[in-house]
Amino acid sequence: MTNVKNYLNLFIEYLQIEKNYSKYTIVNYTTDIEDFFSFMKEQAILHLEEITYNDTRLYLTQLHTRKYSRKTISRKISSLRSFYKFLIRESILNENPFLLVSIPKKEKKIPQFLYEDEIKQLFSVSDIHTPLGQRNQALVEILYGTGIRVSECCGIKISDIDFFIGTILVTGKGGKQRYIPFGTYAQDAVERYMYDGRKILMSKQKEDHPYLFANHRGEALTDQGIRHILNRMIKNVSSILHIHPHMFRHTFATHLLNEGADMRSVQELLGHSHLSSTQVYTHVTKEHLKKMYMAHHPRA
């Protein structure tokens, strides 16, 4: 099995250098491929070229038996397809046995979003007279005001913000960059935090770092840190309301479309490569329109 692990290392280098994938994405690829290596070991298969279509079907059956969700199974098969595709490109293998494997269709879930009164509750919970309260206020204003991903939010540097024209340069998936406008509420919150709370937090560090958001020790805020902050804020607002950071992104898109924004503009703001990724929000806006119709039309 030594060769297969060497091939995996080559593939990881390719994902890091050529594809510029995030650490989280690379961990998923590695986990999925190593899981398949374990299957090969169980089946006494030593080389990747020995894998046949029947082996892939057996592996797929095992994944179903282990009660994996359709989404997880799809991801694992997709990871293995990409791995084999890379090995063929490198002239290490000649065939991709995963090409013919049918991936289970993903369940279409309507994105969860927050209503305006719920958002207002979150904006009123932070004590903006404290450094952490100022940071938290700036955080929720940026997440809701721009619709950026949590990973993109962690990556914001002070130099990325242009207060004069009201935009942030955001680095998204695959290193793609885009400019996103933000409003006066977000600008006020960020400026207050930058010139007051952040300076106090950064005084705990020997050297300043370029990132906008810092934790209580003055270190750059992480994805996990943002989730922890939001969970704490929710507990102070409601025992019923449950949110995850991505809901700010869903809410941003839904509210824009509900107010008449066109799909292409929302696609660009979200940084979606394909319009189909943005179109999922039309299900939400249709529900909104139906409720409006039922509530106000005299013949509803």
Rank of each mutant, 00 (worst) to 15 (best):
M1V: 12
T2D: 14
N3Q: 13
Y7W: 10
I12M: 05
Q16L: 12
E18D: 15
E18N: 13
K19S: 09
Y21H: 12
S22D: 06
K23T: 12
K23Q: 13
N28I: 03
Y29K: 07
I33F: 10
D35V: 06
D35T: 15
F37Y: 15
M40S: 04
M40H: 06
Q43L: 12
A44D: 14
I45Q: 01
E50F: 04
I51W: 07
T65H: 12
R66F: 03
Y68C: 01
I73V: 15
S74E: 01
S74R: 00
R75C: 04
I77G: 02
S78L: 11
L80S: 09
K85L: 13
I88E: 06
I88V: 09
R89E: 13
I92D: 07
I92S: 00
I92Q: 11
E95S: 09
F98D: 05
V101E: 02
S102H: 09
I103L: 04
P104L: 04
K106Y: 02
K109C: 01
Q112Y: 09
F113R: 00
F113G: 00
L114Y: 01
D117N: 14
E118T: 04
E118A: 00
Q121P: 03
V125R: 03
D127S: 11
I128M: 09
P131K: 07
Q134N: 08
I142Y: 02
G145F: 13
C154A: 08
G155H: 01
I156V: 12
K157D: 15
K157W: 04
I158V: 14
G166D: 09
T167C: 10
G174K: 07
G175Y: 12
G175H: 10
K176P: 08
Q177F: 02
Q177A: 06
F182H: 08
F182W: 06
G183T: 05
D188R: 14
D188H: 10
Y193C: 10
Y193K: 05
L201K: 00
H209M: 11
P210G: 14
G218T: 06
E219P: 03
T222F: 07
Q224S: 13
R232W: 00
V237F: 01
V237W: 03
S239F: 05
H246S: 04
H246R: 00
F248H: 06
H250I: 05
H250D: 05
H250V: 09
H250Y: 03
F252I: 01
L256I: 00
L257I: 11
L257K: 08
N258I: 02
A261D: 11
D262P: 04
S265L: 12
Q267R: 03
E268Y: 09
S277P: 04
T282F: 07
H283K: 08
K286L: 11
E287A: 10
K290Q: 13
M292R: 01
M294E: 14
M294T: 10
H297G: 08
P298Q: 08
A300R: 11
